[in-house]
Nucleic acid binder design. Sequence first.
DNA 1: TCGTTTAGTTAACACTGTTAACCAAGCATT
DNA 2: AATGCTTGGTTAACAGTGTTAACTAAACGA
Lengths: 200, 200
Amino acid sequence: MSEQAIDLREKILDISRHMLYSEGHTSLSMRSIAKQVGVSATSIYLHFNNKDHLLHTLIEESVEELSRAIEEKVDDQQDVVAQFESIIQTYTEFALSHPEKYQIIYLVQPEAMARYPREKFRKARRCYELLVKVIEQGVRQGLMEEDDPVTAAYSIWAQLHGVISVVLNQRLDSRINKSHFIKKSIHHITEGFLIRTHVS
Amino acid sequence: MSEQAIDLREKILDISRHMLYSEGHTSLSMRSIAKQVGVSATSIYLHFNNKDHLLHTLIEESVEELSRAIEEKVDDQQDVVAQFESIIQTYTEFALSHPEKYQIIYLVQPEAMARYPREKFRKARRCYELLVKVIEQGVRQGLMEEDDPVTAAYSIWAQLHGVISVVLNQRLDSRINKSHFIKKSIHHITEGFLIRTHVS
DNA sequence: TCGTTTAGTTAACACTGTTAACCAAGCATT
DNA sequence: AATGCTTGGTTAACAGTGTTAACTAAACGA
């Protein structure tokens, strides 16, 4: 594959991601992407099998970037609680500072879920596994009371995702201050998982 | 409006909701609905202005039903903690036993959010206001430590929604037992909001 | 020089939401 | 009884969608 071919592929991805966020996924069409890129609609099919493939690639990119961000920030020299909070913090920061990338991860709806390739699914799990490990350490050190670390990790992630997506999807009451809402929510989520003596 | 007209309207809504859940929203078209109903595509436009209007009506129905379910179950004779848990329980049960109705509520994505009528938004708030009231009572009785009940109510709801939608969207690891996951998560969410002495 | 690959094109197919124009039955008024 | 309005539907059409097939023009290796 030549250089300009790679460039075009990247350009398609960049513009798609941008359009997805600014225009929404309903108005995102192969033709509109092509027009923005400055190329014919069918050219996109030289780089992606179909629209699904394009979107899946975008998802994969975002998952990869989010995972990397967390892995880079978490320092296993830190104590467990600090690692725990660091993961949650980094996850939240990524979502809020790159909403277009974060939202893409959750773009695939249940019906399309079946079509999403298994191996890409496995990659997405990398994030959780780090959290699972930290929780297992915490349990061993007696900092958390948790019989099932895997369930706990997914529960934390689900709650956090709920909080973040409510903010990003603008489902919040206008009376509520967003950053206060997030800070409060994170506090409550972590509090529920750390041993009593540590917090409040 | 005659009887059979109302019947057709109801039939369109029922079949749309059913198709939305079983086939997914990508393949839901006015023509496919019409075919299932046994009528021409344009007949739907006699009852709904456009596809958006149809979907918004479905959302409104679901919100209404969920609100009613909670209002019916919550008994203000109960003590505050029981009311609190009753709301969360009823919300969860509704979502799990009527996934097609629950999911419809969160169908509208951010872009379409602007188009969703304001007065329907206000109706959707009814749910939270009940929760806000309960929290305010709890604070007065010294059962909860919460400086901002509105934020707290939305935070609880966001966390709960995160947990439920992860389950319904089948984003859970196959190793995890769903009902265990939900029970654990609800426990953690409520725990975070009740005063320490009450739990564990 | 001849063939093959590469990177793109245009034309077409079947589908989408939506509108305009039409039609037939029911009903009230003249 | 004839007239016109309303109700509840129809068909035909338009512009836009994902996707495919067939084509072209340039670059490159034998």
